[in-house]
Nucleic acid binder design. Structure first.
Length: 348
DNA sequence: AAATCGGGGGT
DNA sequence: ACCCCAGATTT
């Protein structure tokens, strides 16, 4: 017998991992979440009706893998400095990275500026409105594209971040946490929960609910308005297998790059100071007096895909890069250099 | 599918 | 110490 259960549309096949859900349950959860959101919503500045689409986009990029509470002050300063895509597009990359400071994943700052340049130069400084168009921009994947299309443009999209995935998996599938990354099947499954109307408030509300109530670590099930409907709660909140261990920090490429960034950002500040004083005559060229343009290249080189092999290449090919590598090595000498001699080869 | 990419704060 | 955070991109 081959009869598989199908959803009411007859289009989406289902399995035990992503089961069919009665329409009555979906309706109840939608209403509960939207009502809860109306009373519990955090007053995040990018939710202000006056906020531009570009400002929403910036908030989403900054929020990738970064707690919203940490993003908020940084977003305010960033938007005050570069209010439009054209403003960011015209900024020196060194200044962009310096302003990004320690938000983490500095490659996001580079992609954001690349996206700003595309929008400014090819799209008349206007943020695309559809998720498909947004996803063609650098640094914008499926989540960010859906979020910007929904929150900035009111489009009906399926916003599937870590919060939404956790809520849906618990409430409708009875498991404690989603897989590492969403499958195509999961995305299709999640689409059915997005209502035809109020989809923006659903998207924002279910995300907020995951951030404030249905949290990963200590979910507030005792005070949860979905406790009676939630499949996970009803089945006793079983826990699944442990996730793979998180990557080490000490002694890795990431730590070295962080040290390099610290050096370069400090030198960048000194460069700006000296430029203001107009007294860098006769000072030999080194990292302390390198012009901003040179720092641009070096800072970019030290980011993202710069592997330890690449750093070795930098040291060999560029006198300036050699100084950077040496400075970075000095900075972490107690850790990396001590364990690996004078090489910048690092453990994985 | 698995690796890689930062940094900080909560537990 | 370990886990998690409004993920994206490369291998």
């Amino acid at each position: 017998m081959t009869h598989r259960t199908t959803s009411q549309t007859g289009i989406t096949p289902t399995d035990a991992a992503f089961p069919d859900v009665p329409e009555a349950d979906i309706a109840e959860v939608r209403a509960t979440i939207i009502d809860w959101f109306a009373t519990a919503e955090r007053p995040l500045p990018w939710r202000d009706p006056e906020t531009t689409a570009w400002a929403v986009l910036v908030s989403e990029i900054m929020s990738q893998q970064t707690p919203v509470a940490r993003v908020e002050p940084r977003w305010r300063a960033w938007m005050a400095k570069w209010p439009t895509p054209a403003d960011l597009a015209a900024a020196p990359t060194a200044e962009v990275l310096h302003s990004w400071d320690r938000l983490g994943y500095p490659r996001r700052a580079l992609r954001l500026q690349e996206a700003a340049r595309v929008i400014a130069e090819e799209r008349d400084n206007r943020v695309p409105e559809t998720a498909a168009e947004l996803e063609t921009l650098p640094g914008i994947g499926s989540y960010t594209a859906a979020a910007v299309a929904s929150f900035a443009h009111g489009q009906r999209t399926t916003v599937l971040d870590t919060n939404v995935r956790r809520v849906l998996i618990r409430v409708f599938a009875g498991r404690d946490r989603p897989s590492t990354s969403p499958s195509r099947r999961e995305t299709q499954w999640a689409e059915q929960f997005v209502p035809a109307v109020d989809h923006v408030r659903w998207n924002a509300g279910v995300m907020e609910f995951g951030a404030l109530v249905c949290t990963a670590r200590s979910p507030k099930c005792d005070d949860c308005p979905l406790a009676e409907v939630c499949a996970w709660n009803r089945s006793g909140r079983p826990t699944s297998a442990t996730k793979p261990k998180t990557q080490k920090w000490a002694g890795t490429d990431r730590q070295l790059r962080g040290a390099i960034m610290d050096v370069l950002k400090a030198r960048h500040e000194e460069t700006l100071d000296e430029a203001a004083d107009d007294r860098h005559d006769g000072v030999p060229f080194d990292l302390l007096t390198a012009p901003t343009a040179a720092l641009d290249e070096d800072m970019v080189e030290s980011l993202g895909t710069a592997t330890s092999a690449k750093l070795r290449r930098m040291r060999d090919l560029s006198a300036n890069a050699e100084r950077i590598a040496r400075l970075a090595g000095d900075l972490v000498s107690d850790g990396l250099a001590a364990r690996h001699g004078d090489r910048l080869s690092l453990p994985r």
